[in-house]
């Protein structure tokens, strides 16, 4: 199968996924009991109905769905019901950069350290260094980011008072949330890189390289790490997801003005358009990330393309 056909196939799958995601989210959200205006106690039933018709929420569901899809194709996610005069696009535009900033920082910390520890651990297999790395990775996987975040706050902001507690203002403010988010990523990366290196180290081409007299350093750099990094590529897709999800809670703990709080508030406040808009945004973002990763993977490792 040629590269182009592979890309086209992945692209079609991604488009179908996004369509399915939007449709399912739309109908799931609209089957929820209650309406967004119930919580405002001053509104009578007639006024609630009037508000519903003002936002077009009283029309037949399928008609609403068609309108929504039409707007979506033009990149318009609609108005928030709760925040007056704010579109979902505006909410995303102001708060997504914060979430993305935090996520990228965490990735930038976790990726090099995780890969380094993975390689180190595999090279020193069975030694103390290896056990320490494995221990770190198991512990890292086992501590949820929200718990780690709270403890970092307690130790560094409250007891030692060397770092700010919350908010997103200076570089110093970014340190604790970044660590809270990065540790579990780092742990997973170490684990996968270690397993992958161990597998590569026993391959025949490594023996060949050794037999033809390459230096140890060259074998590790040119033959082992390069091949061992391929599985890391597949992980990047799911990792983007977990970083985004992780930012929700980390944002909550550190009171950061990211997307997470809007998502959670809109769910509890039945702000349909915001919940739906953010779900669609996250969904497209993640599906697109997965698509890119798949393509990169298929190009780097021809075996994947040939498999199907």
């Amino acid at each position: 199968m040629s590269v182009i056909r592979f890309i086209v196939k992945r692209f079609i799958i991604s488009i179908v996924t996004i369509f399915l995601l939007v449709t399912l989210s739309f109908f799931l959200l609209r089957t929820l009991p209650g309406n967004p205006f119930q919580t405002e106690t001053l509104l009578t039933v007639e006024m609630q109905e009037k508000m519903m018709s003002y936002y077009g929420l009283d029309k037949p569901l399928f008609e609403q769905y068609l309108t929504y899809m039409q707007n979506l194709l033009q990149g318009d996610l609609g108005y928030s019901i709760k925040y007056r005069n704010r579109t979902v696009n505006e909410i995303i535009a102001t708060s997504f950069p914060v979430s993305a900033d935090l996520g990228l920082r965490a990735l930038a910390v976790a990726l090099p350290i995780g890969l380094f520890l993975g390689v180190l651990s595999a090279r020193k297999r069975g030694k103390l260094t290896d056990y320490l790395c494995v221990l770190l990775s198991v512990i890292g996987v086992s501590i949820p980011s929200f718990i780690l975040g709270s403890f970092l706050q307690y130790i560094f902001a409250l007891k030692l008072q060397i770092l700010p507690m919350a908010q997103w203002q200076t570089e110093w403010h970014t340190i604790l949330p970044t660590i809270a988010l990065a540790l579990s990523l780092l742990a997973i990366l170490t684990r996968v890189m270690r397993a992958s290196m161990l597998e590569v180290m026993s391959q025949d081409y490594v023996k060949t390289a050794k037999a033809k007299g390459l230096s140890e350093g060259k074998i590790v750099r040119r033959h082992q790490i390069r091949n061992a990094s391929i599985p890391i590529l597949t992980m990047l897709g799911p990792m983007v997801t977990s970083v985004l999800m992780g930012t929700f809670v980390v944002e909550k703990i550190f009171a950061l003005p990211g997307l997470g709080q809007h998502f959670i508030n809109s769910i509890t406040g039945l702000d349909y358009t915001v919940t739906l808009g953010l779900t669609v945004f996250f969904g497209i973002f993640m599906v697109f990330a997965n698509f890119l990763v798949d393509i990169a993977y298929g190009i780097v490792d021809p075996r994947i393309r040939l498999m199907k």
């Binding site: 399915l20 799931l28 985004l244 779900t279 599906v287």
Partner: peptide, 12 residues
């Protein structure tokens, strides 16, 4: 499998 499961868990 492409759909992020956490979003679906939340919706469900």
């Amino acid at each position: 499998i492409c759909i992020p499961s956490m979003i679906y868990v939340i919706l469900i």
